[in-house]
Amino acid sequence: MDLHYLTVILLGIVEGLTEFLPVSSTGHLILASELLGYDASTWAMFNVVIQLGAILAVVVLYWRTFWAVAMGLLRREPVSWRFLRNLVVAFIPAAIIGLALHDYIEILLGAPQVVAWALIAGGVAILLIERMVKQDLFHGIADIPLARVIGIGFIQCLAMVPGVSRSGATIMGALTLGVERRTAAEFSFFLAIPTMLGATALELLKKGDQIISAAVGWDSIALGFVVSFLVAIVVIKAFVGLVSKHGFAPFAWYRIIAGASALVWLALR
């Protein structure tokens, strides 16, 4: 297979695998660019679009939930309005802080060492939170109180440091605030939709001409989108069942090992 398309498929798999796991998709894409030696700026549009493929997987898998909420909104059902309120409120801190700190975040995206250390620190944090959290107070997204939703929204902003993981920060933040595991994971999935759409819109607004002019080819972008979508479908289904039975410790140990390995590799290359 042509090396270019092999890279396309590999990056699509990386995005689909890591977008919804607490291991940082952005961090993995940064490390992949270092490992494979490709010019990240040339692939910027590709990386933006394949994230939307992973987001589409959430819409497809949970279309019944979104349909039920939409119908509930039309019928003015309180539970549907609370569901929508919680997603919007949790998204607002990331929107404001992401817009304000965009230029600083861009600098961090070029620092693979930051990714490696963040992977390790996040892994340790997950292990500690797993040991500390015992109470499951809230078993539905609409049931989470507004004050705790705001807290989850601010905790999600930690993921602006590459390697922290948006899903990891959201899930761990939700757990520490009393949200049950499955609900925390699904809240992270749903919150990814406005968060990633907002991040994509900001990226296109600020660097649209530059990104499009450096595109690797729309056939490659389409292939990466499809690969990311299909892999994310499988991952989301497996992830919810896995964390319900075994918790998040396996992902914590993976982060620690991956981060330490990345530090060694970056030091020796």
Rank of each mutant, 00 (worst) to 15 (best):
I144K: 07
R131A: 09
A199D: 07
R255D: 07
A70H: 10
G241L: 01
R269T: 08
V161A: 07
L84R: 08
M196I: 15
W253V: 15
A260Q: 03
I129C: 08
V115R: 04
L87S: 03
D2W: 07
P78R: 14
L268E: 07
G110Q: 06
E19P: 12
V231C: 07
V49C: 00
I150V: 15
L74E: 14
T18P: 11
Y254Q: 02
E15R: 01
I155R: 10
V79I: 13
L202V: 13
P145N: 11
L146N: 03
I9D: 13
M45I: 15
G110T: 05
I30Q: 03
W218V: 06
L127M: 14
Q113N: 12
T26N: 13
A159W: 02
G241W: 03
I193L: 14
K245I: 00
T170M: 02
L108R: 05
G241P: 03
Y62F: 15
L29W: 10
D103K: 15
L223D: 01
A214H: 13
L73S: 12
L266M: 04
Y254N: 01
K207W: 03
G224F: 00
E77Y: 12
G259N: 05
T65Y: 11
I129N: 04
L205K: 11
A184W: 00
Q156W: 02
L146R: 10
W63M: 14
V179P: 02
E77Q: 15
K134S: 05
A267C: 00
L146H: 04
A54Y: 06
R166S: 02
A125F: 14
A44D: 14
A267G: 01
L84C: 12
